[in-house]
């Protein structure tokens, strides 16, 4: 499999959200606005790429019995770095994402890629896998968030995009809206595959 394929597979064919249904907690929780979605996607992609890099570098030294705790330490470190740096330099975004930044630690996409890919493949492939998966995750978040923000608030990235006469469909930015939009999108993806 070529390096390019490692990169593109995460975006559609093995999309972590719509196909593998991984990491759904942050997808449901922070997809109420596109801005949050981009912030969350960027943070998760950063953690994913760097944990993939580190894990593929140190995989030779880690005995397989303790690989999971080691991976978690690496991932948690990067998440904490993101958390601290975000709070220091982009406090507004950090306030919006709040609790969900520390929760990237338990986002199954990241441990999943560490275990299923970076722990078995070389550095270059792991980097591309991380970027691809991160992009797929971010894109999925943005798609869901766009639908939710436009329907639920009549806005896109905070700008009004619908006529004033449009009465926002509040449910879209509430929790049930997240489930509805994600479920319908997953259904569409499956319909297309058939």
């Amino acid at each position: 499999m070529s390096v390019i394929k490692e990169f593109t597979k995460g975006i559609v064919k093995e999309n972590p959200v719509f196909v593998m249904a991984l990491g759904l907690c942050p997808v449901l929780a922070v997809s109420s606005s596109v801005e949050n979605a981009i912030g969350m996607g960027a943070a998760a992609t950063f953690v994913l790429v760097f944990s993939n890099i580190f894990i593929s570098l140190i995989k030779g030294f880690i005995p397989s019995k303790i690989r999971i705790p080691s991976y978690i330490v690496v991932i948690a470190s990067f998440v904490t770095i993101v958390d601290m740096v975000m709070e220091a330099y982009v406090p507004a975004l950090h306030k919006n994402l709040g609790l969900f930044i520390p929760l990237i630690v338990v986002n199954c996409i990241i441990l999943g890629r560490a275990e299923a890919f970076a722990g078995k493949n070389n550095l270059i492939r792991s980097i591309f896998d991380g970027i691809g998966m991160g992009l797929g995750f971010t894109l999925a978040l943005i798609v869901i968030a766009s639908i939710r923000e436009v329907l639920g608030a009549g806005q896109f990235l905070g700008f009004n995009v619908l006529p004033v006469t449009f009465k926002p469909m509040l449910v879209a930015i509430l929790a049930p809206g997240a489930f509805l939009v994600m479920g319908l999108l997953m259904g569409l993806m499956n319909l297309k595959k058939k």
Partner: peptide, 10 residues
């Protein structure tokens, strides 16, 4: 339930 969650005021 969907309508109440979406347009509670209406």
């Amino acid at each position: 339930a969907f309508l109440v969650a979406s347009w509670p005021t209406l």
